[in-house]
């Protein structure tokens, strides 16, 4: 038996990226959302919606790119329910998120029965996004890093770019600054004439788009069909990644990579029967990490000050 050494190879790192991509996307979405002051635990539900619509659109048009668009847009639109409920109607954010998750299961299952005549899984799409995998000339030749980062599929590349964009958006742009202010000092933001409501709507919507993209990744890039149990808790792992990453884009990315690595490692341990440990020990890893992070082991892991705090403007006689 070759032992643990045989697991530690480039393939493991490729698998890490593959497994962490949906988590990364949903986690940076959640970062933007929570930075604007809205708690979002609905990623699981939005992912399911995104995955479903991406697969359906790809199936009926035969074009995975239209599927991608459909998944992203569906995620965005579905997330607006959360925005309306929490921002306009001042519903508790966690409550709304929990309801969103319940609702998404029902909606998808109902539509499955309506469109395909059965729940479960859709037919396979003719072409998946995996077919558009391409190696970046030159860069992909670098040992180890090349195949891991520069020979990838479209949504994986997008996730890399989106991490950087989110970082720039939150740190360097004016809108990003305003959005963060909505989560830290909403009243101050309102006094300088920027609508907190608008910023928060933006935050929720963008996170919906990103979670929808994460869903599309699951159904039309990593697979070629939609299955009901597809998200399988990844939305919650994304939440864990965002928190472990200290409510920052780069932190979320690193945490997601870490969780992806743990998962990839776990499967390979099983293949090789290296150690006879129940796989659950590895599966719970992200959750334990999150508890440790909020327990103070990660120093900077603190939510925005007004995260989850309702903001209401009293309009006299309006």
């Amino acid at each position: 038996m070759s032992g643990i050494a045989s697991i530690l190879n480039t393939d493991l790192l490729v698998a890490t990226i593959r497994l962490s991509t949906p988590i990364t996307l949903a986690a940076i979405g959640a970062t933007i959302c929570e930075r604007s002051g809205i708690v979002n635990i609905a990623m699981e539900g939005i992912m399911i919606i995104g995955a479903f619509f991406a697969a359906v659109a790809a199936l009926f048009t035969g074009n995975p790119w239209i599927g991608l668009l459909a998944g992203v847009v569906a995620g965005g639109i579905f997330s607006l329910i959360h925005a309306v409920a929490t921002i306009t109607f001042h519903l508790d954010h966690v409550v709304s998120g929990a309801v969103m998750n319940i609702l998404s299961f029902g909606i998808v299952r109902y539509l499955m029965v309506m469109i395909f005549g059965h729940p479960g899984t859709t037919d396979a799409i003719p072409v998946g996004l995996k077919a558009y995998q391409f190696a970046i000339p030159g860069l992909s030749k670098i040992p180890v890093l090349g195949p891991v980062f520069f020979n990838q599929t479209p949504i994986v590349y997008m996730s890399f770019v989106l991490v950087v964009l989110t970082l720039i958006f939150l740190k360097k742009t004016k809108t990003g600054l305003h959005l963060r202010a909505a989560g830290e000092h909403p009243l101050a933001l309102e006094t300088i004439g920027v609508s907190v409501y608008k910023m928060r709507y933006l935050g929720v919507f963008v996170s919906g788009l990103l979670s929808g993209l994460a869903g599309a990744y699951l159904s039309i890039e990593n697979s070629v069909s939609f299955t009901e149990g597809m998200a399988n808790g990844r939305g919650f792992i994304a939440l864990a990644a965002m928190i472990s990453g200290g409510w920052t884009a780069i932190g979320s990315f690193v945490a997601a990579l870490f969780f992806g690595f743990a998962d990839a490692f776990q499967v390979r341990m099983q293949v090789f029967k290296v150690l006879n440990i129940p796989s659950e020990i590895f599966i719970i890893f992200p959750y334990v990490a999150t508890v440790l992070a909020v327990a103070g082991l990660v120093k900077k892991s603190r939510p925005p000050k007004a995260d989850g705090v309702d903001f209401m403007i009293e309009k006299e006689g309006a």
């Binding site: 698998a15 497994l19 990593n222 299955t227 149990g229 597809m230 399988n232 499967v267 099983q270 293949v271």
Partner: peptide, 10 residues
């Protein structure tokens, strides 16, 4: 019996 990604990874 329901997680495609897991089956793929395995």
């Amino acid at each position: 019996f329901t997680d495609q990604a897991k089956g793929k990874e395995a």
